[in-house]
Amino acid sequence: MSIEISDVNKRFGDFVALEDVNVSLPTGQLTALLGPSGGGKSTLLRIIAGLEKADTGTVSIEGVDATRMSPQKRNVGFVFQHYAVFKHMSVAKNVAFGLEIRKRPKDEVRARVDELLRLVHLSQFADRLPSQLSGGQRQRMALARALAVQPKVLLLDEPFGALDAKVRKELREWLRRLHDEVPVTTVFVTHDQEEAMEVADEIVVINDGRIEQVGTPDSLYDRPANDFVMGFLGEVTRLGDVRLRPHDIEISRSPDLAGSSPADVLRLTRVGFEVRLVAGTEDGREVSVVTTRAHARSLGLAEGERVWLTPSSGAATVPAMTPLVRAELAG
């Protein structure tokens, strides 16, 4: 295991940022720390980097106890949400910074900077100032700067949070490919579950300063440990006594299936290739269901029609015992 975090607690005044956090992050993988804003995930990342000190507990990186090590000795690369570019230095100088601090020979620095700028597709911008770059380019430069010192781990704090949706999606895919090329242990913080599911090998879900669940994207999606994880990773609706995903509900026009509940279609919306419908059950609840356009057409669905709803076989469900409010707000 590359990063071991044991019994970490952290408070800011009376605000508990992290409570008894224990987690191991595997070597060579891309791990996402996922959770709502203010849940403690950035604090955990900053504790790993040494930019923040834990009140109690230990952090070890590649088998070395780093709890009391200053950030400059940890050999981690850190990428900040707002890039933290050195405004007065050219792009090449930014990337060279860590190497110059380490007093590497000039030739080596130049060669390494060239290589990294090629890697992040910024070779032609080497002599520009960061203010002349777009947000996405700045973040790629920051990434090259962090990678230049060949860190043992690469930490990214909401790396795409300040970018617009299209650039974010591009950079996300690019990060995944980059990680396959340069397989350094990488941990990134995000509050966007789609981003985590798409990019990460492993996801750590953090909420209210506690770890809710750790696992691969598939296992989290299919076997959420609790209401919160289920709600945070995707849409959730309630059918009878269970909570499940809207696309895990089967619709039929007759009550043939065992355990099906009758409902009336209240609203029907087509979004691209899928159809979302809201149906009112006899107990007065509204259930969301997602189905394909073709299926909806074959069933002849329309507002006011009566349907029968059943959880599809193999659907991820959790009992709807706990109050819905928290998970639904978070999702």
Partner: peptide
């Protein structure tokens, strides 16, 4: 902070 994480004292 970025400079410190890159090893600057």
């Amino acid at each position: 902070q970025a400079a410190r994480s890159l090893g600057a004292n």
